[in-house]
Amino acid sequence: MTATAVPAPLSAPPSALSVGLARIGLELRLYARDPGQVAFSFAYPVIMLVIFGSVFGDEEVVPGVGFRQYFLAGIAATGVMLTSFQAVGTGVTEERDRGDLARLQTLGTPALAYGIGKAGQVVVTTVAQLAVLLAVAAYAYDVPMPTEASRWLTFAWVVVLGILSGTVLGLAVASVVGSARSASAGIPALAVVLQFLSGVFFIDSDLPRWMDQVAALFPLTWMVQGMRSVFLPDSAAVAEQAGSWEHGTTALVLAAWVIIGTVVCARTFRWRRAA
């Protein structure tokens, strides 16, 4: 044994990053042991793809672009929102109601470490979920996958910004909502409304103008549009309200939501239910 193998006596508790990394492992382990959650987050996007595929068959949205290919973008974006915003929002309120968060507070857990754990778990589960979804789309439905590296780069930043904004907004919503009961009723309802508003279920250019303007406030709209720019040929950009993919605006809006959500979390995060 070398001298370095003996741990030096520590006086300060581990850093927020170190606790956060431990929490990512914990969150993933708890996720994997919750069969309902695993089944939901993996099966839901695939089932949506099967339904859209069955309803619309081989019809085309624009020449050369089938419905399955068109809606794959919306389904991928929805999957990101569900595993981040919805799962985090309902999960955090449940943990708070159970007293788990109060326990973490007495341990001196940094709120940042808790956030790192959530975000890390969302990243891993979302990546796995998207891999399954894309594999089913490509192999079972012959949806063409992008071949250019630039498209996969776009895919990566849209997913990362989507995950981050969804996670911090989920945490923010959990601070606002009183109990797990109201969270488990309200958050999925909000998610469904957002899906309709944001054009997950429609052709973007078919939406009424006012609805598109309202939807443009929410990150899901931009995630969906970003995903379309990945999976559809550039010729399909004419079907967008703006007539183009608007990558710059997409990145700005999503980044703005990450910042807004982070600020709201930092100011309102609660370990305990309101007395």
């Binding site: 042991r33 919750d34 159970r98 007495t106 341990l107």
Partner: peptide, 9 residues
């Protein structure tokens, strides 16, 4: 506390 803080799984 009244909770382990990490669920029951």
């Amino acid at each position: 506390g009244q909770s382990t803080g990490a669920g029951n799984a």
